[in-house]
Design a protein around this nucleic acid. Structure first.
Lengths: 297, 297
DNA sequence: CAGGATATCTGACTAAAGTCAGATAAATGG
DNA sequence: CCATTTATCTGACTTTAGTCAGATATCCTG
């Protein structure tokens, strides 16, 4: 890889950590160790249970217990049994705790503010836009893709969102029941797969594989949530589906698409797909593609 | 200010600190406390004196002393007297120290690498570009502007760079001795000022103020280093010069500029300057501007 | 209902980070 | 040359962060 890229990233890391490190320091200004401040903040306005806190902050059980006890002694939180599972304990902020938390919140705001303050409106806009871009692309690195059951609630939600989008984008709308579209669900078709892309646990995309014959699989239901587009998730989903197909011994994948999904067609071509003749009777399809799979990626 | 901007900055801070926090953790992987690792890294390939280390890492003198002693005991650095000032001590890496430092360097590289790895080339480019933008704009906040002596070496270097640039950009070149350009140096003209813009100590821009009469000052030698453009430094320099003029009791500032400096003209107009008739015999000038100064900004 | 799993707490630690008040030696400024 | 300042070191601390091995109470499963 180009080393100038790495240098830029390192320069970025240096500058940004110097800036954001100021936040931890300003937190200390309230006379409370950082650990306690972080817990107080993480409890949040609606409270939380200890297990969730430990999970999200990565704390040892003993350590968490002591931090909370310190906050309780200061009168910032109250800890009580969970009504359902009596082993669990729920943490909620007292009035005093809420106002302390609000103070930390204000400090975070002030730091953010101070990054923008010195800039003119034009530069401010540019900074915010660039930050959004960095954030999105860094998050892209945390996107995981894994096979899941097609009947899971996340899978169904993805498919529903996908259908909804098709209905909006196709010239004459879209009805999953019509047009010879409905395929055999993967459950009834063992030689298939359903992949879900997740970002921090949230499902943000999906794609399905369905066997058409002994050596050909069809890719269907490729969808990426609008907020996660432009991050290469679709490209990765496609590659993962091809890997699945390869794993099932398939030598070729095909897919169809509608003329209104222009970005998809561009992506398919870039991924090595080439247009072929109609291979099914899906009345929503305008283009058909295929790709021959090599033995390895 | 728009709160959505603040929210974006805070989201950015969260995501980025989570990512860069990984660096500290990976540093711990070499079995040495972070404090020691940071000192070892900061010593750098060419060595450093203790005072500089303390300054840049913000360490207490006792703490620094102990950290260095630990590194010395491990055989990673040697500490010896400064030849000149014998109170000072110089720290240099041993061969072993250099290779340890290189290992930390490689860890930083690997972290940077890992941020890029998962992305496709297109997204990689976008991330690097956005990072460069964020870095530059955050640095813009650290730019300081202060009056300095016009004869200081940094001031002279700025002016030299400015003249060199004019020579390149003007259609027929530029010679500071010719064309009625040379003004009375500020030193001989008490009612004036010379401002330098600095980023982390480095001079990155300048601007001078020279009295033309009891209530009119001229702005000259406005220059910003090419690498620091687009950050609003010129705008801030201009505003600072106007403040200086105001402080000197001036009610009006004027300036001249060459037709090839298009961005400058745009900036002047945006800052409230309006074009006036020729007021001097500078043969390099094509446009003349003035601005009436209110009592407060 | 027995036996294991879970959620939390307690006590007993350790290491790291950092602070503070001198002590020492060299430099600097009148 | 004397008083100050500066650069560093030493010893004696404190606080924070974090770990680990039980102890306890509750829940879940067969």
């Amino acid at each position: 890889m180009d080393h100038s890229h790495i240098d830029q990233v390192r320069r970025f890391n240096r500058v940004v950590t110097a800036r954001t490190g100021a936040l931890s320091e300003s937190y200390l200004g309230r006379g409370r160790p950082l650990g306690q401040a972080r817990v107080l903040f993480e409890v949040g306005p609606d409270g939380s249970d200890i297990a969730t806190l430990r999970e999200s902050l990565g704390l040892d059980s003993g350590y968490a217990s002591r931090l909370l006890k310190a906050l309780e002694a200061e009168g910032l939180v109250t800890i009580r049994r969970d009504g359902g599972d009596k082993r669990r304990r729920l943490v909620t902020l007292t009035a005093k705790g809420s106002s302390e938390r609000a103070a930390y919140d204000a400090l975070s705001d002030r730091l953010a503010q101070s990054m923008l303050d010195v800039l003119a409106p034009t530069q401010r806009r540019r900074l915010v836009d660039a930050m959004a871009e960095v954030e999105a692309l860094l998050n892209a690195g945390s996107v995981t893709i894994a096979a899941e059951r097609e009947e899971s609630s996340d899978a169904l939600a993805c498919i529903a969102a996908y259908f909804r989008e098709l209905d909006q984008r196709f010239e004459n709308g879209f009805d999953p029941g019509k047009g010879g579209y409905a395929g055999t669900p993967a459950a009834k078709n063992p030689a298939g797969a359903f992949l879900i892309a997740r970002l921090h646990g949230r499902a943000i995309g999906c794609g399905a594989l369905k066997a058409l014959g002994p050596s050909t699989a069809e890719i269907k239901r490729m969808w990426v949530a609008p907020g996660a587009r432009g991050l290469g998730v679709a490209r990765r989903l496609l590659a993962a589906l091809e890997d699945e197909a390869r794993g099932l011994g398939m030598g070729r994948v095909v897919l169809d698409t509608n003329r209104s999904l222009v970005e998809a067609q561009t992506m398919y071509r870039k991924a090595g797909y080439r247009e072929i003749a109609r291979y099914n009777d899906n009345s929503y399809a305008d283009f058909w593609f295929e790709k021959t799979l090599g033995s390895a990626a």
